[in-house]
């Protein structure tokens, strides 16, 4: 009898610890853009946290103890997928002892798997660099694809937390209206960019190019994920001239030297563009991201 009491007590204690009675859904986002999108759709009913910031390279993250502890308590996991997080996410999932966010559960959502992907390789060979069998994972730079992910997110949140399904639907509707208006505005402003070419450092801009009707002239990385080499840069100076592209685009966290070097040699300006939202910027960060992207590109196009 006494033993029974002790067991009950332990059980209650464990239950208490696990459900620390927070009404909010805990969401583990791998990248800040998904954190912002979840906040847009989930509103006050979610507590979203991002494992990486704009400064991090989501390919190379350590499966740190703190990340495991965070995932342990998550109700929903939202990542890019398409093998972007393949170096650390599988390990987190196995270590977090959390059945709710395992693949196949409603609590497991890979954004890139919800949309049409580009650059799906026809040949899988590691000598081609850091290739992703499921296509280019950097889908966050196309606002149309983001909207699709927002819709799926609303469905998932409703499935996990049916009590607030109406809230999620309302949030989605409100976000959708604002987003569509914004996208129309961006697309109109970006009209002069149509048909223009860019030299890029890494291949993460493809969805933005696809959206804006632009194209990639060349990449500074000889192969995706491999650092720009002197030989490859030299070959680019042979192939490209001043009019070959509008700009050399790199992300703030890229090594600045290769783009600078090429710019000095062929006379194309370097343009630093953000590729995700700032940490904890919330839904406003998503609007700010595309405002900035379009603003910088259009300003440069006007100067030419």
């Amino acid at each position: 009898m006494k033993r029974f009491h002790v067991l009950t007590l332990i059980g209650l204690l464990l239950a208490g610890l696990t459900n620390t009675a927070s009404a909010q859904l805990r969401v583990f986002a791998c990248e800040p853009e998904w954190q912002a999108l979840i906040q847009a759709v989930g509103g006050d009913h979610v507590d979203a946290w991002s494992a990486t910031t704009a400064e991090d390279d989501a390919h190379h993250v350590q499966a740190r103890p703190s990340l495991i502890a965070k995932l342990r308590r998550a109700d929903l996991l939202v990542c890019t997928g398409a093998e972007l997080e393949t170096a650390w996410l599988p390990l987190l999932l196995r270590r977090a002892n959390n059945p709710a966010v395992q693949p196949g559960q409603p609590g497991y959502l890979m954004a890139a798997e919800q949309v049409e992907r580009l650059e799906i390789p026809t040949r899988l060979d590691r000598s081609d660099g850091d290739v992703h069998a499921q296509g280019n994972p950097h889908i966050q730079l196309d606002p149309r694809r983001l909207m699709t992910v927002a819709q799926v997110l609303a469905q998932r949140l409703s499935a996990i937390d049916p009590a607030h399904a109406a809230n999620y639907a309302a949030n989605l509707a409100a976000f959708s209206t604002r987003w569509q208006t914004a996208v129309t505005g961006w697309t109109d402003r970006a009209a002069p960019l149509r048909g223009q070419g860019l030299v890029v450092q890494h291949t993460e801009w493809v969805y933005m190019l696809d959206w804006l009707g632009m194209y990639r002239v060349a990449a500074l990385e000889p192969k995706p994920g491999l650092p720009p080499s002197a030989a490859h840069l030299a070959s680019l100076t042979q192939r490209l001239d001043k009019d070959a592209a509008m700009a050399i685009v790199r992300a703030p966290d890229n090594d600045p030297r290769p783009a600078q070097w090429l710019s000095e040699h062929i006379g194309i300006p370097v343009l630093i563009l953000p590729h995700t939202v700032e940490a904890d910027a919330g839904p406003a960060g998503l609007f700010a991201l595309f405002d900035e992207l379009i603003g910088r590109l259009v300003a440069l196009a006007a100067r030419r």
């Binding site: 798997e113 949309v115 992907r117 580009l118 650059e119 799906i120 499921q134 296509g135 048909g195 493809v206």
Partner: peptide
């Protein structure tokens, strides 16, 4: 009639979602 330069070989062809 505005084809991107084909010589550079970086096409962004959409491919079906399902492998």
């Amino acid at each position: 009639d505005t084809p991107p330069p084909a010589s550079l070989g970086h096409h962004t062809t959409p491919t079906p979602m399902a492998p």
